[in-house]
Design a protein around this nucleic acid. Structure first.
Lengths: 104, 104
DNA sequence: TTAATCAATCAAGTATTATTGATGCCGTGG
DNA sequence: CCACGGCATCAATAATACTTGATTGATTAA
């Protein structure tokens, strides 16, 4: 039914995906974990900017971070992706028939 | 691989879902098509505001409109939902193994 | 311990989105 | 033809989101 917490969670997850830079990041992470400096290199962009987008993705739960030495490795959280996939799927219409009553 | 047009399309679709009001609208439409006045009633909000959000959903292709007399009925475009579902699914990590090389 | 590197955070500026009330268009009923 | 109802659109404002450059904390190498 997508009510209450689900609605807010869906909105947050979708917001995190509603940006091409963040989709680029996820595309990179699909092949395995990466540290920020690798991403700045791959995506040709500034460290600060990337850090901002990584935070959005992390806050939404779509990526996980693993500090190692002075690097921080990011990786996709496949569970969250699957969760979102399910939430999106639940938006499909339950009936195709034209509704009988009208109020206007 | 989520590149080029797909990336932009995914961002647009996700942006359209990144708002609780729009999720509420879709939730209503799941049960069948509705005209704007029914939605303003169900969602307890202003007509102008609703019209704005309906436009965002329509521009993204997530809903379809059907004029009938002086009403306009909106309905979920299940194809677009399925398309997005697939795009989201394609974000899942392809390998779980730790990547061997590092550049930093 | 000092210098250097990686990455988060902050502050300031810009850009994009959302809300609100007003206006206009179009189809319908009188 | 006229008035009304349903809805889109516009203009102005408010709220969010994004970008950029500078700073800071933490970690490692010298």
């Amino acid at each position: 039914m997508l009510s209450g917490k689900n609605r807010a969670k869906t909105a947050e997850l979708c917001h995190a995906l509603a940006d091409e830079t963040r989709l680029d990041i996820l595309d990179q992470l699909k092949e395995g974990e990466r540290c920020v400096c690798e991403l700045t290199d791959a995506l040709q962009t500034g460290q600060s900017r990337l850090s901002f987008h990584l935070k959005v993705l992390k806050d939404a739960g779509l990526i996980l971070d693993r500090p190692e030495g002075r690097w921080i490795y990011y990786a996709i959280n496949s569970e969250a992706v699957a969760e979102l996939e399910a939430l999106v799927g639940s938006l499909k219409a339950t009936r195709k028939t034209v509704r009988p009553s009208s109020r206007c």
